[in-house]
């Protein structure tokens, strides 16, 4: 399910990026979509990294208690 959500997020980012670039090519204001696509893509990676780091901290905590 997590892989499916990640694929969805990437697909949305790429579609927005493509749509934005097409609009810019047509002389229409598509920069907003390009910026939003970049933010979403960055958010996808950053939040996953943050969740992974939080999980590592939670796993490490009991080990310290065993000593």
């Amino acid at each position: 399910m997590k892989k499916r959500a990640f694929a969805f997020e990437m697909a949305v980012s790429f579609v927005l990026m493509a749509l934005g670039l097409v609009l810019v090519q047509l002389g229409l204001p598509g920069y907003g979509l390009v910026v939003v696509a970049a933010i979403l893509m960055g958010l996808s990676f950053v939040t996953r990294k943050w969740v992974a780091q939080t999980a590592n901290v939670k796993v490490a905590a009991p080990k310290r208690g065993n000593h």
């Binding site: 969805f8 949305v12 927005l16 979403l40 958010l43 939040t47 969740v51």
Partner: peptide
């Protein structure tokens, strides 16, 4: 609060 729900909801909120 986005940190709690992950980036999926952000992508959905734009799509």
């Amino acid at each position: 609060v986005l940190r709690n729900f992950g980036s999926f909801i952000a992508s959905f909120g734009v799509l």
